[in-house]
């Protein structure tokens, strides 16, 4: 249906926006919950119904930031603990990944030397790194951070190097004729030219980080949303798990949107 953009009544426009954009997801979610409710209402069902989830976890929903000491803290704090680890591991991955990616992009020698190693290492599943990092660090928290780092670094590294390798020869010729010094070339040509590629890597990286942290925390214990899920499973609090999954999904989505939005801005600013 064609909406006339010259509609003078803002109320009408809000109404149209609501019906066209908001209505479909609301309807679909409602149907989904309804089917779930029906399926899990049977006596033999192993999983709670949506209404049961809400009533079971009401305290967790209403009070995400309580602190009863130890591991007994609200969901907000659990997520916060995971986010801190992700922030550290991901930041490290960004710094090291972009640097190594640039090195591979500008040095044929470095590419020939490092590329085969990276191609093999990047296929190692994130959790396979956990035992070796536990052995190395002898501590849970740095191990989890390392797993995030090693998970997120590959797409960042590889996309950065592709971006640097693909700097249009026009810009390279300009920089040669103008005899730009290394720093100016790096900051005024290489980084802006490779930025869209780098952000593609950053976006994949943040997604993988969030996947990795939940899995790693299930194994290392302590605090964090991953451990919360594992703990809930051990205590048979299935409703808590459902709630945690919703939180994990929403936070992952927000992280992705943040990086994607920055990336879109950068790509727009640097496009020809």
């Amino acid at each position: 249906m064609a909406t006339s953009s010259s509609s003078p009544k803002p109320l009408l426009r809000i109404w149209r926006y609501t019906t066209q954009r908001m209505l479909p997801p609301v309807v679909v979610i409602f149907l989904f919950l309804l089917i779930w409710q029906i399926l899990c209402s049977r006596e033999s069902a192993h999983l709670p119904t949506p209404t049961a989830v809400v009533s079971d976890t009401l305290e967790l929903i209403l009070n995400p930031f309580y602190n009863h000491g130890g591991n007994d803290v609200g969901m907000g704090w659990q997520i916060w603990a995971s986010l801190k680890r992700v922030a550290l591991g991901y930041s490290l991955a960004v710094v090291v990944g972009v640097s190594l990616g640039i090195l591979i992009g500008i040095s044929t020698w470095a590419m020939r030397g490092l590329d085969p190693i990276f191609q093999v290492l990047r296929t190692v599943p994130p959790l396979a790194w956990l035992p070796i990092s536990l052995a190395g660090f002898q501590d849970n928290n740095p191990s989890a951070i390392f797993v995030i780092f090693i998970t997120a670094i590959w797409p960042i590294l590889i996309n950065t190097s592709v971006g640097v390798l693909n700097i249009p020869s026009d810009y390279q010729n300009v920089s040669k004729v103008l005899r730009l010094n290394h720093w100016t070339y790096f900051s005024k040509i290489m980084l802006p030219a490779a930025a869209p590629y780098i952000f593609t890597g950053l976006r994949i990286g943040i997604g993988l980080s969030w996947l990795g942290i939940v899995a790693a925390e299930m194994l290392i214990g302590g605090v964090g949303i991953g451990f919360f899920i594992w703990d809930a499973w051990n205590s048979s609090l299935i409703s808590d798990i459902v709630l945690a999954l919703i939180y994990v999904g929403i936070v992952g989505y927000i992280l992705d949107r943040i990086v994607a939005t920055i990336g879109d801005r950068v790509a727009q600013a640097t496009s020809a």
Partner: peptide, 20 residues
């Protein structure tokens, strides 16, 4: 010896840096 601004080139496709 190599490229330099003493022989400045105007490229056919302009080659302006799009981010500036």
């Amino acid at each position: 010896r190599g490229p330099g601004p003493d022989r400045m080139m105007v490229f056919q496709n302009y080659s302006l840096l799009p981010w500036m």
